[in-house]
Design a protein around this nucleic acid. Structure first.
Lengths: 185, 185
DNA sequence: CACGCCATGTAAAGGGTTACATGATTAC
DNA sequence: GTAATCATGTAACCCTTTACATGGCGTG
């Protein structure tokens, strides 16, 4: 139930076309709310139909022509309402933790390689976040908007830091285990 | 694509009926892979059709009668295959981070209350994990299975610790902000 | 003019969520 | 015996994912 609000936020930050939104979802906003271009186009159509956004007037609104959207006042109000509303946290789903739990039953064979790979992926993401922090949030601070965005980025940095460290422990644990944890036939 | 493997893991740990599985998904395994009873019943039917599990013979397998499932050898092999297979991490989705990003555009009014609420929910979950740790993983350690399960629990503890701390920062940040961050009409 | 890319879309399949339905067992 | 609870299941809807389709634009 949050994709439309992610799009409204992105469009308020800067009016964009569907493909431009898709690219931005591959970067900043997508780091905590990913979406494919099919989702985005469908949702743009819905939002326009509901009168929350509108397409800026273009010369020839034909297929294959760029369409740039902006947020209408009703859209801004809906986003403010949603932001302030009470929401329960979604139950977590983490396949890697599930795999470790499964490995406790069927054995850890073949698992270490993928744990190391995940560790590197998280380390790379962490480095990317740190670069963004250096670039966009230098010590001399900005306004309230920047402080909030920096807070969100800090969450990303701390989470990736946690995962790289935890995966280090996991690799060490799994590497030190005897083969044949799984039941032998 | 992981619900069947979550169920296989749970059934290997202990053969169970659909409702017993549902209860256990509300506790241990559900902490990182939640599922409702509808999902579980549907998936049990599929797994039985694929020959990965079987219902233990009962007196009268009628509607409303308890049906206990156990994992067959093919099921154990499938779980071992899945556990060892390389898998990409799923892109994250976090509505709370998205809301903070939205608040940077439309203002933080009404947000602090829910931030505090989330902080308490995470603090409570953290306390529950710590209790489980005291109960199930006392300092004198167990075997390899227990070390893996403890590792998974540590991930939960560290993640909840992170969230409570981060939400403390977030509340402090938001509480110190002037009203009317959103555009004034 | 052919090829690759930009940009917008359609279709189908699958998984998750919510609401509802139904038989069996237990407690009063 | 009837109400609550246990236990299993159906159905509809929504969201996400994946694959494919279509038209326009720029370049050699």
């Amino acid at each position: 139930m949050s994709l439309p609000h992610a799009i409204l936020t992105a469009l308020l930050e800067k009016p964009s076309s569907g493909l431009e939104l898709t690219r931005r979802f591959d970067r900043s906003i997508g780091y905590f709310w990913s979406a494919t271009h099919q989702q985005i186009y469908r949702e743009l159509g819905k939002l326009e139909g509901e009168g929350l956004i509108r397409a800026l007037p273009a010369e020839q609104p034909a297929r294959g022509q760029k369409k740039v959207y902006e947020v209408l006042e009703a859209g801004r109000e809906e986003l403010a309402r949603w932001t302030a509303a009470s929401q329960d946290p979604k139950p977590q789903r983490d396949a890697l933790l599930l795999r470790l739990r499964a490995a406790a039953v069927v054995g850890t064979e073949g698992l270490e390689r993928d744990l190391r790979r995940h560790r590197e992926l998280h380390a790379r993401q962490l480095e990317m976040y740190r670069e963004i922090e250096r670039r966009d949030f230098p010590p001399g601070k900005g306004g309230a908007e920047d402080r909030l965005r920096h807070l969100v980025l800090r969450a990303g940095i701390d989470l990736e830091t946690f995962w790289t460290q935890w995966l280090d422990h996991a690799v060490a644990e799994v590497a030190g285990m005897p083969e044949g944890q799984g039941r032998q036939e």
